[in-house]
């Protein structure tokens, strides 16, 4: 039992990371019907921006909560800017072209970030500094959680609620929903559709950056290709929950994280990466719209 609970704690932790990344996929899809395959690489950049920020402000040698927070914010801002540049430079020019052109562009951007990363950061893994000294907290019954896991859970939950607030209650959030419903109708309201699309990329990229830093707290070995697998899994999580659906991305991320640790714990660690694809195939066969997704009923 305690074994199971321990797995569950780990699974929810990973799940919240997948959820953060999946949100970026699902928001961009909702607004452009585009799978931004470079999104996993933005997550990788988040970890590296965090690394450089940590070195810059000395968070590695003298860790304090304030410094850790600054590292997180710096990585988020950096990736927000990268997201805006990717959208303006790569996706906007092909927005009126075919979906195939957009897909090829997405793959191109992803390769560019990965190989650019190898060029700039070097091909070998780097170590993310301990900006939060680790400790274990016992939950009783042999179940424990690390303080880093607690931080992952608290920060990702906080960010998800912040996103929820933005999307549901703010002017720009309502504009995002209007654009995702119909670009022309949104433009007729006086909404600058271009600006809202860029804003959506910025938000998604900031969440991915946060995920990158949070994961690096726990798994400090970071490298330019580290975004590929989590990116794919988060994409599957978004599809699982219903692509384009924001609560669905959170649910899909949690399901993915829990499924993964259960497979590792009870089957074999070598199946860890396979479960994502099994889930993808199953959901596409059983319920292609995802758990919370609805049939695309617009454009009557």
């Amino acid at each position: 039992m305690s074994e199971f609970l321990q797995q569950l704690v780990n699974g929810v932790t990973w799940g919240s990371v997948y959820a953060l990344i999946a949100l970026g996929y699902t928001m961009v899809y909702g607004i452009l019907r585009l799978i931004n395959f470079a999104h996993g690489d933005v997550y990788m950049l988040g970890a590296f921006f965090g690394l450089y920020a940590a070195q810059w402000i000395g968070a590695a040698d003298h860790p304090t909560p304030v410094r850790a927070f600054v590292v997180l914010v710096a990585a988020m801002l950096g990736c927000g800017a990268v997201g805006a540049i990717i959208e303006r430079a790569a996706y906007k020019p092909v927005r009126r072209s075919s979906r195939l052109a957009a897909l090829i562009t997405a793959i191109g951007v992803s390769l560019l970030l990965e190989n650019g990363g190898i060029l700039v950061f070097g091909p070998n893994p780097r170590f993310f500094p301990q900006i939060v000294p680790s400790s274990q907290i016992s939950l009783g019954h042999g179940v424990s959680i690390s303080n880093q896991q607690v931080i992952i859970l608290v920060v990702s939950t906080g960010l998800m609620f912040a996103l929820r607030f933005i999307v549901l209650n703010t002017r720009v959030g309502k504009a995002m929903r209007a654009v995702s419903h119909n670009h022309m109708a949104a433009a007729l309201m006086g909404i600058s559709v271009d600006r809202i699309i860029t804003f959506t990329f910025v938000l998604g990229s900031m969440l991915a950056a946060a995920a990158g830093v949070l994961v690096a707290l726990q798994n400090p070995k970071i490298d330019p290709l580290m975004g590929i697998m989590p990116g794919l899994k988060a994409f599957v999580a978004a599809v699982l929950g219903g692509i384009g659906n924001i609560p669905g991305a959170v649910l899909g991320g949690l399901v993915m994280g829990i499924a993964e640790v259960l497979v590792v714990g009870y089957l074999s660690p070598s199946y860890r990466d396979a479960i994502a694809f099994v889930l993808l195939i199953v959901i596409l066969l059983v319920r292609p719209t995802g758990i919370l997704g609805t049939q695309a009923a617009e454009k009557v």
């Binding site: 309502k174 929903r177 209007a178 419903h181 909404i191």
Partner: peptide, 15 residues
């Protein structure tokens, strides 16, 4: 082309 998933009030607000 009303925004189907938004409330009547939110539609007006977007106007």
């Amino acid at each position: 082309l009303v925004f189907a998933n938004l409330t009547v009030e939110d539609n007006l607000e977007l106007g």
